[in-house]
Simulated assay, not measured.
Amino acid sequence: MNGSTVLIVGGGIGGLSASIALSDAGYDVNVVEIQEDLHSSVYGVGIIQPVNALRALDAIGCAEACMAVGYATTAWGQMLDVDGNLVREMPGARIPGSELPPMNGLTRPQLHRILTDKALGSGVTIDYSKTFTTLTDGPGGVEVTYTDGSANVVDFVVGADGVYSKVRPYVLAEDVEPVYLGQSAFRLNIPREPEIDRIILQHGPEGLAGFVPIGPDLAYLFYNTTWEEGRWLDQDSMADELRKRLAPFGGLTGRVRDKYVNDSSQIVFRPEEWLIAPGPWHNGRIVLMGDAVHAVTPHLGQGAAQAIEDGVVLAQCLSSHSGHEEAFAAYTERRYERCKLVVESSVQIGEYEMDPASHPDFDHAGLTQRVLEAMARPI
């Protein structure tokens, strides 16, 4: 099927990764992104790249560039108590025979620039301020009409358009909507304190504070907390709210709170949602990937990792099967249980963080380690 035309709806991490993998495999790839440019399509502050994400990025020629601008760690992280005392080391996982580190962190704009430059260099075309209006699948391809009034026929359509995917209804027989976990997260870029040389997790009485290095001199603070669904804060009240919620913390979190949590305009606030769509993840010539079928809460740092893996596996399956039905079925088979493990484990961690007393035997660090080891196995 090399030489076939592929339309990817969505120019985020998953869509760009898939575009590179498919273009490198010989497909003619066009990406449409509804946002107006590269920067407006970037959400959040920084991103965690576990070793399995780096392996997938290495497959599309982007891992070295990510590590060059980010912060590669020698271990996954540490867990601290509310006063900042060490509770447990979290070694993370490595891939046998590979020199890739357990984790790399970098800013989201840097990652998007790396993926965009690689995609364009691979021959992918990217159209911003554009998406589809209708998809009509048929024996000769998918007829696509676009928001700019144009139309064409492509061999395959990949829905990489996120948790509220507009492509998803063309694939799944039943409506699937994301589930709000009950938590929301504050995030803020800060100067990297010396001890933030890996992920640092600090449990508090009503939430979890954490730190991720994303450059030699840069890190980000996050705080996961129980939050009423539908309640939004005015942007100018973010710093006051976050300082109030971080008041019980000593140690690193208390120090960062007092030094850096002062500019509401720099704080990103997001609800934490999840979904795992039933298979198959395709219908005819239209296939889904990333958050469109497996939205992941951030507790294991695996959301982007799974989307990047999707793109690599999708290209492998299309290249190794003579028909698209067999290829897409193989893609779902290789991805479903792996993604389900990540989604469900992340939800378990979030539920524990919201109510530790109801989960007295829950092993946060142990579950994290088991999932990271599972992700280090071959895809």
Rank of each mutant, 00 (worst) to 15 (best):
R198F: 14
H324D: 06
S322G: 09
L115W: 02
V268Y: 13
H112T: 09
E351Q: 14
A315N: 07
P248Q: 03
M79W: 12
L318V: 02
N30A: 06
H324C: 11
S265K: 14
E351M: 10
G138F: 12
Y170I: 02
S41E: 11
D363T: 07
Y223K: 02
P271Q: 01
V153S: 01
L246E: 07
D137Y: 02
G105W: 05
V69A: 09
V287L: 09
H359G: 04
N52R: 11
I349N: 00
P191K: 07
E373I: 11
T253V: 14
K259C: 08
A376L: 12
G303C: 06
R270H: 10
V45D: 04
L86I: 07
Y128R: 10
I200Y: 04
M238N: 14
V31P: 05
E33Q: 02
A173Q: 12
A72G: 11
D24R: 15
R94K: 15
T253H: 04
R245E: 08
P298D: 10
P194Y: 05
A247W: 05
P213N: 07
G250F: 12
Q302R: 10
D291Q: 07
E373Y: 03
S322P: 05
D28K: 13
I60D: 00
S346K: 05
D58E: 15
I286H: 03
G77Q: 06
A365G: 12
I95L: 08
A151C: 02
R334M: 13
Q369N: 04
N30T: 14
D291P: 00
E206G: 11
D137Q: 06
R255L: 12
A119N: 07
Y331S: 06
Q348G: 13
Y331N: 06
I308C: 00
G207M: 04
H39A: 11
I48S: 14
H364W: 01
K259A: 15
T136H: 14
R243V: 08
V42P: 05
Y164G: 13
T368A: 14
R255Q: 12
L16W: 01
P101Q: 12
D58G: 15
R55Q: 13
G123A: 10
D81R: 06
L275C: 14
Y260M: 08
S265A: 14
Y336F: 15
I196V: 15
A239Q: 07
R255Y: 11
G284M: 10
L242K: 03
S98R: 09
A357W: 10
S358W: 03
G140K: 05
S23P: 06
T332N: 08
G254E: 02
G141C: 00
G279K: 15
Q316T: 13
L80T: 05
S165G: 12
G250D: 11
V157K: 03
A65T: 08
A357L: 15
M67V: 08
L288W: 08
S19I: 11
I190A: 08
E177A: 14
M375Q: 11
R94G: 09
I60E: 02
L80R: 00
D117I: 10
A68C: 07
I8P: 00
A160C: 00
L38P: 08
H39C: 09
A75C: 13
P216R: 14
V51Y: 00
E272G: 02
D291F: 08
E228S: 11
V343C: 02
V176F: 01
S165M: 10
D234I: 06
G70F: 01
D310K: 00
D148R: 09
L106A: 03
G123Y: 08
G149M: 09
Y220N: 15
E99Y: 09
R113Y: 09
T136R: 14
A72S: 13
R338N: 03
